[in-house]
Structure formats: structure tokens, C-alpha cells
């Protein structure tokens, strides 16, 4: 049914409301960051909630439809492995007991689906369908089978907001796999979003990286555990007046491919993640990334 909007009116009161609206928007804009999160959270959990739930449903359906065949193959492979190694499990547990060795993956890992808001200003952000109830905390690293995707920025009870490496606030302390060269990895925006790439900066001038050198998190920043793959060096960016070098890095994880991720709880986790990604033998920190074997799903890490 057609319901016409009321006819316009001209009054000082109307101008007052208009200017008040603009003033209120400025007030929101200049609120402290910690206060801004509350209204944003309220909007996400009220008005926008139906749209987010619908997107979660669609994402889940898409994940299910895409991965059924792939998962069936993996399940079949796992069944073969489990059947053939059934006796090894008990043997392994006894050995661990005798040696006092901990479990390979400690507790504190949570898997989640990723949802992209797709609204202006949310570039580099994603929503997670898990929150503090599932053990997710602020600054927790978010990883895929191929390596580091980003970190958790904000946590609610049953949801969280994260940033991937394309976000302008992304920083990670990185090193070569042998720990000989350290630097700081940050996002460098390209001419368009798909051309975003990573840059490792702060490398002393006397140290040089070969193209193809794999970079992993160093654990120095206190946010990312040591050993999570970030990407590989593909070109030198600049040498700043003989003080330091920087290199362009091709990330192992493309944000667009991230549908299902694993969130690491840094509080409970002191594992060296280098052991989880089998890159083969490399004493130089090096250039044989093509030979690396990647664990391509979270099942592999468990």
C-alpha cells in the first residue's frame, strides 16, 4: 500500500533538529575509542543482527556445499590412517606418560567461521561466530592451515571482530625460520584492495634476505606465538640510506579464501608453532618454499 511521506515543513525547529543531528554525529565521531565500541556493538546485536544471522546461515550453507566432497576425501584418508595406526595410539600415550611429554596441541584452540561485513569502512575486518564463551580473547591470533590470517580485535560473549593482514593496523614481529633475521611485518595497501601486500621492515642493512625466504612469527611482540608462517619474500622494497632494508612479502593466506579459521588462545599457549608447519629441512632460513608441506586444515593441526 502506498503511504506518502508527510509534507515538508519550514520552521526554526526543523533547522535546530538538523543541526543537532550533525552535532550528535560529530559527538559520536570524537568519542574515545573504548566508548565507541559500545554503540557499535549495540547496533550489531539489535538492528543488524537478523542480517548477520542470515549471512552466518548462508556462509554455513556455502561451506557445507563446497567442502562436502573435500571433507569426504579427508575422512576416508583419516579412516585409513586411524585403522592402520590404531595400536600406535595406546603405545604413543604410554610413551608420553613415561617421558612426561605434553600433548602436541595444547588447549585453547577454537575453530570458527568467518563472516565479512561488506560495508564501507569494514575493509580488513571480519566477524567470528565464537566469542569469550568459547575462550576467544582480544589479540588472539587467527590462523589458517597455510599460516597467519590476522588477530582478534574485539570480543563479545558469542561473537568477535577480527582484522586480517590487509588491515592498516596489522603488525607482526617476524623472523626467518632459522631465527637469523628479524623484522616487523605490516600491511602495505596496493592501488586497489586486491593488490594489498605485506612489507617486512626494520631489517639491518648488513643482513639480506633471498627471494623465496619463508618468514614466520617470532613471538617477540607477545601477541603471535613463535613459528606461525606469514609469507615469503619476493622483492626488495627499499634500502633507507644504508640503515635498514625492507622487502615485499607474498602472504601464504589470502583473506578471500578464509572461510573457516582457528583462533589460538595466547594465554594458555606456549607452543612453538614452527613444529606444526613442516617446511622440510632448511638451515639457511631459506628459499625452498616450493618444497614445503602445508597442513591444510585444522584437523591436521590436531
Amino acid at each position: 500500500m502506498y503511504r506518502p511521506i508527510q509534507k515538508r515543513e519550514r520552521s526554526g525547529q526543523s533547522k535546530f533538529f538538523a543541526l543537532s543531528s550533525v552535532f550528535f554525529s560529530l559527538l559520536l565521531l570524537y568519542l574515545p575509542a573504548e566508548l565507541q565500541e559500545t554503540p557499535a556493538y549495540l547496533i550489531r546485536t539489535t538492528v543488524l543482527k537478523p542480517f548477520i544471522l542470515a549471512q552466518e546461515y548462508l556462509v554455513q550453507r556455502r561451506v557445507h556445499s563446497i567442502e562436502v566432497e573435500s571433507l569426504q576425501i579427508r575422512v576416508d584418508s583419516l579412516l585409513v590412517v586411524i585403522t592402520s595406526q590404531a595400536t600406535h595410539k595406546e603405545e604413543n600415550m604410554r610413551m608420553k606418560d613415561l617421558l612426561g611429554v605434553a600433548e602436541k596441541i595444547p588447549y585453547g584452540h577454537t575453530s570458527s567461521n568467518i563472516i565479512r561485513p561488506g560495508t564501507p569502512g569494514s575493509e580488513g575486518l571480519f566477524l567470528l561466530d565464537v566469542g569469550s564463551r568459547q575462550g576467544v580473547s582480544v589479540n588472539a591470533p587467527v590462523v589458517l592451515g597455510e599460516g597467519l590470517l590476522g588477530m582478534v580485535q574485539d570480543v563479545q560473549k558469542s561473537s568477535a571482530v577480527g582484522i586480517d593482514w590487509t588491515h592498516f593496523q596489522f603488525r607482526a614481529s617476524a623472523m626467518t625460520r632459522d631465527g637469523s633475521v628479524y623484522g616487523l611485518v605490516r600491511s602495505d595497501p596496493g592501488g586497489f584492495r586486491e593488490a594489498d601486500r605485506l612489507l617486512i621492515d626494520g631489517i639491518p642493512f648488513h643482513q639480506q634476505l633471498n627471494f623465496g625466504t619463508v618468514l614466520v612469527t617470532s613471538g617477540l611482540g607477545g601477541v603471535y606465538p613463535r613459528g606461525i608462517p606469514i609469507g615469503e619474500v619476493f622483492a626488495e622494497a627499499e634500502s633507507s640510506l644504508g640503515w635498514r632494508r625492507s622487502y615485499w612479502v607474498t602472504p601464504f593466506v589470502t583473506p578471500g579464501e578464509a572461510i573457516h579459521v582457528v583462533i589460538i588462545s595466547p594465554v594458555e599457549d606456549e607452543l612453538d608453532y614452527k613444529e606444526l608447519w613442516n617446511f622440510g629441512v632448511d638451515s639457511s632460513g631459506g628459499s625452498e618454499s616450493n618444497e614445503r608441506v602445508i597442513l591444510t586444515d585444522s584437523v591436521g593441526m590436531n
Binding site: 526543523s14 543531528s21 570524537y30 569502512g121
Partner: peptide, 27 residues
Amino acid sequence: EVSLGTGSLLGLLLGILEDGFSVVSFG
């Protein structure tokens, strides 16, 4: 079709909706 105040208020409400996912530039 509407008054100045209503138009601006409508803009404010639409903007707040869009700001729901702005972590660093809310408003």
C-alpha cells in the same frame, strides 16, 4: 519530501547503521 530536520535525522540513523562495523572510525 520531508523537512530539513527529519532528513538530517534520517541521515544520522542510516549513518549509525552503517557505522556498526566501523571499529576505528565510528561516527
